[in-house]
Design a protein around this nucleic acid. Structure first.
Lengths: 339, 339
DNA sequence: ATGAAAGCGCTAACAA
DNA sequence: TTGTTAGCGCTTTCAT
């Protein structure tokens, strides 16, 4: 078996309590001599705590749960999204740095999520890709700090890390306008959450330009969330695209996919149709031509989510619940100056 | 507080032991009447076990650790690889299905990894992106079942899930040959592990065609593992590339990146240079032109890794330690028939 | 078929 | 400054 506090105590001729105090840095209660002695033995014997016992006794698990919803992502065919990859890695790195461990679960079943939290005595939760309702349900059931990512909602008291999506929409609308694309279309597979806010940014800009409500609505295209549906949709809309000459997609993934489709149909990008994306992920840089897009810093969001959660767990007061990071316009080659 | 076994026992007028037996399906020791009664109460009260107590008492944590190394991936700039994303998601799904929970950690420090395993009483480990030595160290220290992914090594008794990399190399070599590209080059950023085996497959084919050792060596190009280095390298090698007319990259990522680079230099793909990749991930399909590549089924590998680990944990005998899944040649548009 | 009791390793309240 | 003690919730002999 591994070495326990009891073993260390015996070897140091002290009580388990003292050893425990040393381990937890309650150093004011321990004389320098014993402190040093115990630390030496701890190190020599390579003491490793048993989280099982810690959880039982102290009621603190040092576990942070990362919950991600899968349904919508799979539907959209973006389950290979590099977003998740980089997000998870940054989350774990930061969680560990903060002294916690990461329990990871994918599910669309709320019961599963809160059962997990209870089973493991989880101290805080980070959720990605869950709806506001699901988040609210989990928070009520679990009663532990919860930080969401990329959610917009009205529920008071819920912490969220996000992006200035609206500003992103605004920036790109402005840029497209400056390039002469006053007629650009916006394409997204839904009109809620971040995609809605990106659209709102566009609306703000266009209204400043004197656009009417009716004209606005015609610019907003809801594309199917399955790949075959999208192909068919693009086929149907091709004449419209060629007329408007500029498409602003709510994500790089959709933008890159569209570029692919259009090129296969011998449309020249950006000469015939300009394309813009959102995210600035690997799809944007790998695309031919590379995408003009709105950059978001995913690691920054992930690290912020963990830090906010840790602060919440520590019970710090005066924490700003909502945090939205800035975005940046990245100009590459997929948008042409309209002649 | 949440409901405990003791509470259920009291309500059912039985002892905690009996409740525990019911929970674990030790049903032969329980009369049908009490069984039913207890199950009803369990359900009604929404009993959720405390893993802390379980770990302490029963010494079984139901935890599977997923360890990934980060160093090499970051160096190569493939830390946004969709591979990790899809792999992690499939791993978690399968781990949960098998009745385990997933503890996730990223690290290049072996001590950290085995401390994690000991701290959490982890029952089995899946590692990705660690060297054979690191894996061996972890296995020795932890003494628990370990399944690696995509590792080649000589250490007996280590379980691994991989791919028929050699066959992949062979298949693509054969295809390129058939298309008239008898002079194709192979490009990878190392000559160990999977990349080495892919090269070995090429070697096997070329030897069948009567190629000499010397000629073989000249086909194998080691590219820098940082992006700037690669750019400079491609610049330097451009004349060679144009002469050979066909490049087979060890991964879709590098292939797609090269396509990008070459097109920016006004090289037509595949007319002037044919490009082949390996993996068939999103880079291959998003590339313009879409890549001819070797397909691997990542979810299949992930699920197999978990199942093998679960079998090892259960102590099943006669388990095949090494499992390598087949690959498939996917023909798209990035390889032209050589005139 | 059911129960009593010991103990897993640790923490924290309380004593000394 | 240090030690004693009583659990935390569960499993597991061993009785009954």
């Amino acid at each position: 078996m591994t070495v326990r506090i009891k073993d260390i105590a015996r070897e140091a001729n002290v009580s388990p309590t003292t050893v425990s105090n040393v381990i937890h840095g309650n150093t004011k209660k321990v004389s320098p001599a014993t402190l040093e002695r115990i630390e030496a033995i701890l190190h020599k014997r390579q003491y490793i705590p048993s989280m099982g016992a810690r959880m039982l006794a102290g009621n603190s698990s040092h576990l942070i749960g990362v919950l991600i919803g899968s349904k919508r992502r799979q539907e959209r065919g973006i389950d290979r999204d590099p977003f998740t990859s980089i997000l998870l890695e940054t989350l774990e790195t930061e969680i560990f740095r903060q002294g916690y461990y990461m329990l990871f679960h994918i599910s669309d079943r709320p019961e599963e999520n809160w059962a997990l939290a209870a089973t493991w005595n989880i101290e805080g939760l980070i959720t990605i890709g869950l709806s506001p309702e699901e988040n609210e349900g989990i928070r009520e059931k679990c009663g532990i700090p919860l930080v969401t990512v990329d959610v917009y909602y009205d529920i008071p008291g819920m912490a969220n890390i996000g992006l200035k999506d609206e500003e992103g929409g605004y920036l790109m609308a402005q840029f497209l306008f400056d390039q002469g694309h006053t007629d650009f279309l916006f394409l997204a597979d839904n009109d809620t959450g971040v995609d809605h806010m990106r659209w709102e940014g566009i609306v703000t800009f266009l209204k400043e330009q004197g656009s009417s409500e009716g004209a606005l609505r015609e610019r907003h295209l809801l594309i199917p969330s399955d790949i075959d549906g999208r192909q068919a949709y693009y086929q149907k809309k091709l004449p419209l695209f060629l007329e408007k000459q500029a498409l602003f997609f709510a994500s790089d993934y959709y933008a890159a996919e569209a570029v692919q489709y259009l090129r296969q149909n011998n449309i020249r990008i950006p000469e015939q149709i300009s394309i813009a994306g959102f995210d600035d992920n690997v799809y944007a840089s790998m695309c031919s031509p590379p995408l003009t897009t709105i950059r978001q810093n995913v690691p920054q969001k992930a690290a912020a989510a963990v830090r906010k959660l840790a602060a919440l767990i520590r019970g710090e007061t005066g924490i700003q619940l909502e945090e939205r990071f800035p975005v940046e316009l990245i100009i590459r080659d997929s948008v042409a100056l309209r002649r």
